[in-house]
Write a protein that binds this DNA or RNA. Structure first.
Length: 679
DNA sequence: AATATTCCCGTTTTT
DNA sequence: CGGGAATATT
């Protein structure tokens, strides 16, 4: 839709150079660029996400935006670390002011374009005031490191464009035609940027569906799309109520579900597609049953000539992917997974990137502290904290302390090691002008990281392999963009999203969260975990936006072209404990005539067979720590500890050969031995 | 200082 | 259950 319009504009109305197309993910941007190429209209067009656009603008016009030229983008982990420091700096208890909570609050503030100062000025109560203090401290630390977080990218651009008419005019002239996809998920900062860029010409083409707004939790404001006609009075509104993707029954089910939302503009979807089979709902006993049922269904689907890349499994939380993965491996199904164990989040990868980040931006203290002893080079916690204290007490950067001989003298015995490290950095400094792949190769071999991972790789070879893969990725990057610098590459890797790694062509089934599924389509879709508390998700301490949860399931169902299966489990294990569940209320909202229910109840009741109850030994009264016992296999032993639970008694035993074992006493083949028997 | 071990605690979702 | 952090051990 956006693609076709952009191509049309480029061919008939304007130079592609004047077109800005904003997508929701990098993957969508890449696909759009590709299709644009086929339409012969790609040259010079800007196609990217809001975050990528802002990063680029901040880089190019850094002086106008008031950010350091070589700023580093701090990801969630980096940001958490800085927030922790900020909380400490404010002398607050980390258990009362949890970094995760503070992080979310600051993020929310930034998405609403509230700077630390603005946030502080609207203080209402003590909690807000304290958050404002942390926020201010966080900003100070971040600024000191030449860092910007994800939310800064948007906020900074939005705020400056509001003030700087000259720059805005310049950008407006450059981007005369703006197209935005998934407009229903824009937050205040993104909305502001869009508005400011189209102030003069009002040339904005936005696509979106209020029923698919699922990012409210990160500041997305559904009002942005609802008020579009008011914001752009000249706009032509095209309503797409005909659906070309799904069967009649899938659509009917989705439609009935979303009708449960009260805050909504009525809309009836229709299609000329086939009726199709009913939506299936399956109820299983527990997670493993659900996972293997789906794996079997997928196998069957593939044997019926459905291409694996046309099959997807969605879930509300990433934690549910593990069981599915195991089942898929058992069944021998090839799959790819969005996010989860993200490549760029692995330790070895983050280590290498941290080297580059320090070389490019010496102020990046988070990265510096990460690599100062990685691989281990004899610089321990005490030395590090001395260096940090020295730096902070004199208002300098840790990096500079490393390079000051007089400061280093006061560090103690390990100052030699620190000198070695600084020499290493000095030697590596030259790589920043080389192509990324070369630079990476240099860093990996000279830092000792390769040696470290090679030596420890007997047990697990993947870290070394990941480093190789990183170099390959960088090589590919260099080939595609020979002009790009290391800073560009770091920026790109920082902005990579969960689904970017997925290959739509690969002959693999795709596993992902419902959020990641937005904008995609598959022939056959499975959605697991339709249980109260999971979908709709709820947390005891926070009220849930049930309507957004309903939209989330709506998005999931409407990804499917041919078949949809929803599943739930009667007992769900989470965090090691199994709990009885309640079926999702959403299942009951589906129209009965479009849905086929089935129960995958276990045929043979494996549990609760009465005879395996087990019994305590008749002389239990005599058992205590120190009691001698005999086991038919392990022989003579001594009771180390006994723990009487409500239903079971656990016992730890040490045997003559020194080995220790624990049993549930009711089932253990242990008998008590009297001293005189041993003789 | 480095490694081994235990402890602790889970903000769902993401750029 | 599982990762990361605090803590114990060498």
């Amino acid at each position: 839709m956006v693609t076709n319009r952009a191509a049309h504009l480029a061919r008939t109305v304007t130079d592609a150079h004047h077109i800005l197309a904003i997508t929701f993910t990098n993957k969508a941007a890449a696909e759009m660029r590709e299709r644009m190429q086929m339409l012969g209209a790609a040259e010079g067009m800007t196609v990217c996400t809001f975050h990528a656009l802002c990063a680029r603008l901040l880089r190019v016009y850094h002086d106008r935006f008031g950010v350091p030229r070589g700023f580093t983008i701090f990801d969630r982990d980096d940001r958490r670390k800085v927030i922790k420091k900020a909380i400490e700096a404010c002398d607050l208890a980390a258990d009362r002011w949890q970094p995760a909570m503070v992080d979310a609050e600051i993020s929310r503030a930034k998405n609403d374009m509230l700077t630390a100062a603005t946030f502080a000025s609207q203080e209402t109560d003590w909690r807000h005031a304290t958050l404002a203090r942390i926020y201010a401290s966080y900003e100070e630390l971040l600024t000191g490191m030449d860092g910007l977080d994800f939310d800064d990218l948007l906020m900074r651009v939005a705020l400056v464009l509001q003030e700087d008419d000259e720059l805005r005019d310049k950008l407006e002239d450059r981007y005369r035609y703006v197209l935005i996809d998934e407009y229903q998920d824009t937050n205040a900062a993104q909305y502001t940027i869009a508005r400011l860029l189209t102030r003069e010409r009002e040339n904005l083409c936005a696509t979106g569906d209020p029923d698919q707004s699922i990012y409210g939790w990160r500041g997305a404001n559904i009002e942005n799309i609802l008020t579009f006609e008011h914001d752009y009075p000249g706009a032509k509104v095209v309503r797409l109520e005909q659906n070309y993707r799904s069967t009649k029954r899938i659509l009917a089910a989705a439609d009935a579900l979303i009708a449960g939302n009260t805050q909504r503009k009525e809309k009836t979807l229709w299609t000329e597609n086939d009726e199709g089979p009913p939506v299936r709902v399956v109820e299983c006993e527990e997670g493993n049953d659900e996972a293997s049922l789906i794996a079997r269904a997928v196998t069957q689907e593939i044997s019926r000539k459905t291409s694996p890349d046309e099959i997807a499994v969605f879930y509300r939380v990433n934690a549910l992917s593990r069981g599915l993965e195991e089942a898929f491996i058992r069944e021998g199904i090839r799959y790819q997974i969005a996010g989860g164990v993200e490549f760029y989040n692995r330790k070895e990868i983050k280590d290498v990137l941290a080297y580059l980040r320090v070389l490019v931006n010496p102020a990046d203290e988070v990265s510096l502290l990460r690599i100062i002893n990685a691989p281990p080079r004899g610089i321990g916690a005490t030395t590090i904290s001395r260096l940090v204290n020295k730096a902070h007490s004199t208002g300098r950067r840790v990096f500079d302390v490393l390079f000051s001989d007089e400061e280093l003298a006061g560090v103690g015995r390990s100052s030699g090691k620190v000198r070695d490290f600084r020499q290493l950095l000095d030697k590596l400094k030259t790589v920043i002008d080389q192509p990324v792949s070369k630079a990476l190769e240099h860093v990996i071999s000279h830092s000792g990281l390769r040696a470290q991972y090679r030596s420890t790789s007997e047990a697990d070879a993947s870290p070394a392999a990941n480093l190789d893969e990183l170099v390959s990725a960088a090589t590919a990057f260099h080939q595609e963009q020979p002009e790009a610098t290391i800073v560009d590459w770091l920026e790109q890797t920082a902005l990579i999203s969960d689904i970017d790694g997925l290959d739509p062509e690969a002959a693999m089934v795709t596993l992902m969260t419902l959020h990641a599924a937005k904008g995609l389509e598959f022939s056959v879709v499975y959605i697991v975990g339709l249980e109260d508390g999971l979908l709709p998700f709820s947390r005891y301490d926070e009220e849930t936006d049930e309507e957004e949860e309903r939209r989330l399931l709506f998005v999931g169902i409407t990804r499917a072209k041919k078949r949809v299966t929803l599943s739930r489990v009667r007992y769900r294990m989470q965090r090691g404990i199994t709990e009885r569940t309640v079926r999702s209320r959403f299942l009951d909202e589906l129209p009965a005539d479009q849905v086929e229910w089935s129960d995958d109840a276990p045929k043979k009741p494996k549990r609760r067979s009465p005879e395996v109850r087990g019994e305590l030994p008749h002389d239990i009264a005599e058992w205590e720590v120190g009691t001698l016992v005999r086991h038919p296999i392990h022989g003579l032993g001594r009771v180390l500890a006994m723990h009487r639970g409500k239903k079971r008694t656990h016992v730890d035993v040490e045997f003559k050969d020194g080995s220790k074992r624990s049993w549930v006493l009711e089932f253990a083949k242990l008998e008590r031995v009297d001293y005189d028997e041993v003789g």
